[in-house]
Design a protein around this nucleic acid. Structure first.
Lengths: 108, 108
DNA sequence: AGTATAGTTCCATAAAGTCGAACTATTAAA
DNA sequence: TTTAATAGTTCGACTTTATGGAACTATACT
């Protein structure tokens, strides 16, 4: 099995990060992880979304450098790369999360 | 001629704003307007981009509530809706602009 | 082994982006 | 007041990206 690849901090771009955050489903996922900590995929995104689509959303978040995915058993645990993002783009993620009031968190 | 329509503050969503900012060309445009003030369209975006595409990018920015477009003669002057965005999503635009170091500004 | 769970990959369809060409609107010049 | 020039939009074709169902892979449990 192919190991999960994540971009190096140097490869993370602002446009990619903002693009990844610019989707209601992904915003909800990110907010959920921020609030509830490391989070399994399935629980996020709501019921009315195909798991192949959800897989795609996590891929976008991963490749943008926003989440780190770790495989544990059958599940993938996702965590925010908060410190790295804060170092590279100070205040961006924090401001976005603070502004995400309307976005509901997954009930897990 | 149809007047240019802009979304009301209440209609602006975080996902739309982030999506609009999540493109290198649009990020460059926004940074340029932020630095140089009200700005005509043509000068932004570089030479290697079709004007129909540029028109599309400004439409995205306008519909997301990021820029206000005003027609003056043959040109369209664009300004950032800084105050409204700051009121609705405090710190977001400021953090993004501050983080946009790698993005070069249009030479006008 | 057999079954269940968690995700990914593949394929087909739907939605967005990109660009050239034609069109509209405004200004300036002849 | 036609004619030309400039600034942008709109249209149509093509390309790219998103979405979801079905089949597949990997791990765990019995």
């Amino acid at each position: 099995m192919r190991p999960i690849s994540h971009p190096d901090t140097a490869q993370i771009t602002l446009a990619d990060v903002l693009y990844a955050l610019g989707d209601p489903v992904r915003l909800k996922i990110v907010k959920t992880i921020a609030q509830k900590g490391e989070q399994a995929c399935r629980s996020c995104g709501g019921e009315d979304i195909a798991k192949s689509t959800l897989s795609h959303h996590f891929k976008i978040l991963r490749e943008a450098g926003i989440v780190h995915t770790e495989k544990v058993g059958t599940q993938h645990l996702n965590s925010l790369r908060t410190d790295e993002l804060e170092a590279k783009f100070p205040g961006v993620l924090a401001a976005v999360l603070a502004a995400a009031n309307d976005i509901e968190v997954c009930d897990s």
